[in-house]
């Protein structure tokens, strides 16, 4: 779900990214993030997202921006797309460009 490939942190939640996974995932992300120069997020294998998962994603993008790291979303599956549409989330221009 969270891996480091060189200086790239890859975040690809498999299955669910909900309140039940967020705490553990947050710990992992916090552990890897300081070493990363770039963060790549991939939601193509994410079946379900909820508000807690969404906030984790937003917080991650904000954190990378604050520390000058690059961040992009590599792919989005139907479930996450629907969720984002329900919330009316406007993708960050920086990430959006990579989609």
């Amino acid at each position: 779900m969270v891996t480091m490939e060189g200086s790239t942190l890859r975040f690809y939640p498999e299955g669910e990214l909900t309140i039940y996974q967020v705490e553990e995932t947050l710990k992992e992300l916090k552990g890897f993030l300081p070493e990363a120069k770039e963060v790549v997020i991939d939601f193509t294998v994410t079946d379900k997202m909820d508000t807690a998962g969404f906030q984790l994603f937003v917080s991650l993008t904000k954190s990378t921006k604050a520390s000058g790291q690059e961040c992009c979303v590599d792919g989005v599956g139907g479930s996450v797309e629907n969720f984002m549409a329900l919330f009316g989330y406007e993708w960050d221009a920086q990430c959006k460009g990579e989609l």
């Binding site: 947050l26 969404f54 906030q55 937003v58 917080s59 954190s63 919330f87 009316g88």
Partner: peptide, 25 residues
């Protein structure tokens, strides 16, 4: 139906409480 989520209150990861709700609509 048209919604717009406001994420301005979502903190950086250091301060993020995983179960707290920060978003408004």
């Amino acid at each position: 139906f048209e919604s717009h989520v406001d994420t301005s209150a979502v903190p950086l990861m250091e301060e993020l409480e995983p179960t707290a709700c920060y978003v408004t609509f």
